[in-house]
Design a protein around this nucleic acid. Structure first.
Lengths: 175, 175
DNA sequence: TTATTTTTAGACAGACTTGTCTAAGGATGT
DNA sequence: ACATCCTTAGACAAGTCTGTCTAAAAATAA
């Protein structure tokens, strides 16, 4: 594994488990086993790593999601499996929540470059849900329920909110 | 204003605008104009201030909410005014989002004392919504939509998600 | 008035932060 | 063979962080 990727994957793990501000560059290079010079050779700043982290997380997350949802045939089952996917991720990642929402809480409100990446991720998620639900109002509705399912399961460290949201979306589909 | 309150109100402002980790004790005492000794005389640690901040924020927020919602007569109008309240808070506080969710993103997952305060706040919000909607399933539904309205308006820095969520809740009430 | 509590300013410890720099050597491409 | 690119270890700057401590003064209570 190349130095660049070692830094990025280490930063990804640490940012996601500890948070952005709680993770220092010295810790990243220590865990990734690279020299500090290599870090600043590959990345302009800590913020640059953060953006790379969010972008790679975006790619990873959507790839996993599409793989998971692709197992279903009917669109009505695809949209429900999005919630199953969330439950699997929660389990795998110990209810650490959405990287993008967590980062949003840590950056100052004038940081437009990071904010842009976060907004872009959520926009694409909305587009994805719209691709599964033709009715635009129901799609918006399902998107909001999915977002709260993420955050509520993070708060209470259990799958109940996801199950609740999934049930509601299911009831929306039969109408 | 007493020293204790000066510290707490300053910490409240700074934590809410800059975030918990981005705000240092030196900054708090400088803005609050108190000596460092006074800070540690009144608070055991930074974490103790954080808990006091969340508790006072909880009281303030619910007080404001009840004041706002109390203006309406019918429960069906009360529940809709909860979303109007959110829009007013968003406007007043520049879409900085929920103090509790923002703090959640900043603490380590083993910090049960702070997590407890956050969970308690959300539980009470759910109870409040249930007091306005007799149908439990619709209440759960409205709660989830309110939560996503908070977070989505913070992400996109506009009121659209709140309006969308409000419209959906309105449609749920007529059934 | 005396005793206790509270506040003051600020030095200090010890550790941490991001980022720069030097000097060297390995790796790669031409 | 030579030049460019990449990585190494680590010192260093200049600042930050939380928390402790001293010593004096002010406020409050008995």
């Amino acid at each position: 594994m190349k130095v660049y990727d070692r830094i990025l994957s280490t930063a990804t793990t640490l940012f996601h488990t500890q948070g952005y501000n709680a993770t220092g560059i010295n810790q990243i290079i220590e865990v990734a086993k690279v020299a500090k010079g290599s870090f600043y050779y590959n990345f302009k700043s800590k913020e640059a790593v953060c953006i790379a982290y969010l972008n790679s997380r975006h790619d990873f997350w959507f790839q996993q999601l599409q793989l998971y949802v692709g197992k279903e045939e009917k669109p009505s089952e695809k949209i429900l499996s999005v919630f199953d996917f969330l439950m699997e991720m929660n389990k795998k990642e110990n209810f650490r929540g959405c990287s993008f929402l967590n980062t949003l809480s840590e950056i100052s409100s004038d940081n437009t470059s990071i904010l842009g990446v976060i907004q872009n991720h959520k926009k694409e998620l909305k587009v994805f849900i719209k691709s599964l639900i033709t009715n635009e109002q129901i799609a918006d509705h399902a998107y909001l329920l999915f977002e709260s399912a993420i955050i509520e399961s993070q708060i209470f460290k259990n799958q109940e909110p996801v199950k609740t949201a999934k049930k509601i979306v299911k009831s929306l589909m039969v109408k």
